[in-house]
Design a binder for these strands. Structure first.
Length: 204
DNA sequence: GAGACCAGCAGGG
DNA sequence: CCCTGCTGGTCTC
């Protein structure tokens, strides 16, 4: 935490903040390929109100780089993590190393939430979409069309759907807060999960 | 570079 | 409800 009056400095060791006060850092594919040795990822499984999930965190600055909900077998989530960060060394750790970070994720303590850091990798377009998602207030939802307008690309509605789907950090990048205009409600882990997360957020 | 794929949307049966 | 045309970014040859 920086000195001074602001609780939330604009920059924290190379991380930016968006309107929702989430800390994030962005890299593109080329930067990742050049410096992939720096992006060693430690991972572990945890539980949430919505089931078990797999989380991956950079070992240096402890930025969340990956989060997926897992079903029975853990292999699918792990394969997904490898696919997202193919050049990174992946190290499974005992729960202590990541649980300190993760116990804040599903907490209603906003100060704790704001201490989280995210590492986003994708194209310029995907970054715009994901940053737009981070600005959606908790418990509310908007449409793909509105997201497209917000990033000044009003016709790219369908492309927004694509980008949302490719988000690597479930829940923290709130893809569950985007809905179809005419009630369509698709989600990687099922529409029920999407609704469950949204109503959970509204309760807080 | 072409062609297919989509968690979209509007419009018409 | 399903089908069709239009759409733009990404992925796969």
């Amino acid at each position: 935490m920086a000195s001074g009056t602001s609780h939330f400095p604009e920059k924290v060791q190379g991380f930016d903040r968006n309107a929702a006060m989430v800390c994030f850092r962005t890299i593109n594919q080329a930067e990742y390929e050049q410096n992939h040795a720096e992006f060693k990822i430690i991972y572990d499984f945890h539980s949430s109100p919505f089931g078990d999930y797999l989380v991956g965190v950079t070992n240096t600055d402890k930025a969340v780089a990956f989060l997926t909900f897992v079903k029975e077998g853990n292999e699918e989530g792990l394969a997904n993590l490898r696919k997202c960060w193919p050049l990174s060394e992946l190290v499974e750790v005992d729960d202590n190393e990541t649980s300190q970070i993760m116990q804040t994720v599903f907490s209603s303590d906003t100060v704790a939430n704001n201490s989280l850091r995210l590492l986003l990798m994708g194209t310029e377009f995907q970054m715009k979409v994901w940053q737009c998602l981070l600005d959606i207030p908790k418990g509310t939802s908007i449409t793909y069309e509105q997201v497209a307008r917000n990033i000044n690309n009003p016709k790219a509605v369908r492309a927004v759907g694509n980008a949302v789907m490719k988000n690597k950090i479930a829940y923290l990048v709130p893809c569950h807060r985007v809905k179809g205009k005419s009630g369509s409600n698709k989600y990687k882990w099922g529409a029920e999960m999407k609704d469950a997360i949204l109503s959970y957020e509204k309760q807080e």
